[in-house]
Amino acid sequence: MADIISIAKSIFENQKAEMIIGYAKATKEGRTRPVVVRTLDEVKELVLNSFCLNNLSTYLTRKENKGKRVAIVAKGCDIKAIVQLIAENQIRRENVYVVGVKCSGVRRGFEGHDSTKIAEKCITCNVKTPHLFDELVEMKGEELPGTDEKAESIVKLEQMTANERFAYWEEQFERCIKCYACRQICPLCYCERCIADKSMPRWIETSPTKRGNFAWNIVRAFHLSGRCIGCNECERVCPAGIPLSLINRKMAKVAKSEFGYESGMDPNAPTLIGTYDVKDKEDFIR
């Protein structure tokens, strides 16, 4: 299997794409940064290692990239987002050249930030070999330790009383400063005008009040229900440290248990919202 640089070269040489979205070395050792490579000369910047945590697919829907022929370096988890974007008419399959990464797991954070543990999303990953790609590249990685603590936290929350759960989330959401980093990084938050920015009417208060924060976080989670592919980027970028993955994963769990649905697997499969089954469960409806 070729390495990322020779793959990138051949993409340009064979004019498979106008640009390549990939990872580059960051200024600090033990970090990577997203990079857009447009010429053969720049190709040497590309790297691929276990610090490639970011989900780059979020850049596919950026205005400047829309409609262009773009190549992207994407791990299986990132490809789920690409699948979802195709299913939601945001990108066309033929416009995106997917360099799928065979991946054994990435690090939870950069050097000095949990970099010795495996990212939680990798523990339950079912797409270590990508499920949609144009070309494969292998990421060399080492066995990383780590447990899925969030799965336990979800169960713990489920077992709490409603009041306890409310108190828990009240405390978490209180820290929200409405920076919307969670939204900006999310590959599936591609709306040009988010409902949070809608002013007529203002469904979600702009100032970071308890009430506005609660509304925002519920709406964010709901809009991603049945869509979120679990890349966990929102939680990673949240400056307030709100455990957003708990909610996201809870909703993915619901989608699975109620509908047997998993997002991001098949671009041609019907989406969860937008379809229905006459036999959908309704034991909660009077």
């Binding site: 939601e88 945001q90 591609y190 709306c191 040009e192 989406t271 937008g274």
Partner: peptide, 13 residues
């Protein structure tokens, strides 16, 4: 038309 991004969930439902 300014804010629609064409996800077509409306069309689906």
């Amino acid at each position: 038309e300014n804010t629609c991004v064409g996800c077509f969930y409306c069309k689906k439902v």
